[in-house]
Design a protein around this nucleic acid. Structure first.
Length: 439
RNA sequence: CGGGGUAUAGCGCAGCCUGGUAGCGCACCUGUUUUGGGAACAGGGGGUCGCAGGUUCAAAUCCUGCUGCCCCGACCA
């Protein structure tokens, strides 16, 4: 992509409304634009990051055996009356009447709808286990949206729903998502800590929040330092087996958000030098809720004995539009964003120091073509802005690798390769630079 | 929903107290000189001063009402 033909409205100054660093950087890097309180447009650079995040989520959901669907954002109120949540949900649910004065709502979540889909097609335990997910816009009309897309009213959510014959099978389904989540966040360059969460009226231990540690996180979290260094299950994980042994190392050490925190238990369980108390951002939440929806809504399957039983369910959420700022909170410096390679909007940035100079133009064009040929996404700054402005902009938008091409280097047959994270710079021949970027 | 702010060009701000027909920096356009870490000079374009009403010869400025947005709290992927 040539920068001169792209839409990248970066800002030198920070819009006044932005308080936290990720919000400031997302606005300055031209990733988003606010349309109303808690409502955002995603501009090209932001859209690219969002797409990369969603792609990783999909890969890991699919690997874990979940199947993608797509449900509508607008739902009929009748479904929610069946589950009893239409009246219970409160002001956070955006209610709409259509032209026939039918009661509709912009969905804050999809348990009712997925249960309706399930019950209309599945009759036998032989069709279980089943896990259906989608990535789709949700609306929660929060009293006070804030922090950019970290807490917005309209937000993207990956929500998966599992269906099983009994609680034991549902636990295995829960563990599959547990491992999938560990892998998903790990692949995005994040250290996530699963923390036991309030599981509501069902009780038990099958509810976890996945927390990213970041200084500017919203809530206080406490855990055993050992949690941060646990190896993450590999992509060869057999999701058809029981994953209890893989999950156990993550559920045994102490880890709790402030709502669940017990200081005495913390001190008893964790030696002082391993006690971590930090800020965290919730990027995922999984829970088992049994027959809470299947029973009132009549989602039953015939068991081996031929008798109908309400299906056991769980739901599993990740917020991609929250992950973007979460990643930035965890990875930035005073110059701007530092994207982990897996979610960077472009893999490589090329800076042409002297557009119009035949040698510079030719070297940049060659570089761009060869990097694209090996499958890299390249943003080529071919504008005639001053050198300093180009460096600042490329650092602001956080591309992990940058190649700087100018007459001084070319006179020696070299270009400069820069690593955004470490700040390391080295002069290399064009071929060596391409070699280094391919590795 | 309680408390506190704020609203003037795309962004950041001044002007308001003391009324006289809108200004600065950045960004943008033209030209020249420049060019290795947010260039210099010269010229230029861009504004229903959030909205509505009122006071006045005259309102960005004073008065009244409303709305948007931000922050703190309670609530939440």
């Amino acid at each position: 992509m040539r920068l001169s033909r792209y839409f990248l409205p970066t800002l030198k100054e920070t819009p006044r409304e932005a308080e936290i660093v990720s919000h400031r950087l997302m606005l300055r890097a031209g990733m988003i634009r606010q349309e109303a309180a808690g409502i955002y447009s995603w501009l090209p650079l932001g859209k690219r990051v969002l797409d990369k995040i969603c792609a990783i989520i999909r890969e890991e959901q699919n690997r874990a055996g979940a199947i993608e669907v797509l449900m509508p954002t607008l739902q009929p109120a009748d479904l929610w009356k069946e589950s009893g949540r239409y009246d219970a949900y409160g002001e956070e649910m955006l209610r709409i009447a259509d032209r026939h004065d039918r009661q509709m709502l912009y969905g804050p979540t999809n348990e009712e709808m997925i249960t309706a889909i399930f019950r209309s097609s599945i009759r036998s335990y032989k069709d279980l286990p089943l896990n259906l997910y989608h990535i789709q816009w949700k609306m929660r009309d929060e009293v006070r949206p804030r922090f950019g897309t970290m807490r917005s009213r309209e937000f993207l959510m990956k929500d998966a729903y599992s269906f099983d014959l009994d609680k034991e099978a549902s636990r295995r389904a829960y563990y599959r998502m547990f491992v999938a989540y560990l892998r998903t966040f790990h692949r995005m360059g994040l250290t996530s800590v699963p923390m036991q969460a309030d599981s509501g009226p069902i009780g038990g231990d099958l509810s976890h929040e996945f927390i990213i540690l970041a200084d500017t996180g919203e809530s206080e979290v406490f855990c055993d330092k050992a949690m941060l260094d646990l190896p993450i299950p590999g992509e060869d994980t057999d999701f058809t087996g029981d994953l209890a042994d893989l999950v156990a190392p993550f559920t045994v050490p102490y880890a709790a958000t402030e709502e669940m925190h017990d200081q005495a238990a913390f001190e008893a369980a964790v030696p002082e030098e391993r006690r971590v108390s930090a800020r965290g951002i919730e990027v995922g939440h999984i829970f088992y809720f049994g027959t809470k929806y299947s029973e009132p809504m009549g989602a039953v399957v015939a068991g081996p004995d031929g008798k109908d039983v309400p299906v056991e369910m769980g739901s599993y959420g990740i917020g991609p539009t929250r992950l973007v700022p979460a990643i930035i909170e965890a990875s930035h410096d005073e110059d701007g964003i530092i994207w982990p390679a897996a979610v960077a909007p472009f893999d490589v940035g090329i800076i042409n120091m002297r557009p119009g100079d035949a040698d510079c133009d030719a070297a940049c064009a060659t570089l761009e073509a060869r990097l694209q040929a090996i499958g890299l996404d390249v943003l080529y700054d071919d504008t005639d802005a001053r050198g300093g402005a180009k460096f600042a902009q490329m650092d602001l938008i956080g591309l992990p690798k940058q190649v700087i091409v100018g007459p001084k280097g070319l006179a020696q047959g070299e270009v400069e390769l820069k690593d955004r994270r470490t700040g390391e710079r080295s002069m290399l021949s064009l071929d060596d630079a391409i070699e280094a970027l391919t590795a």
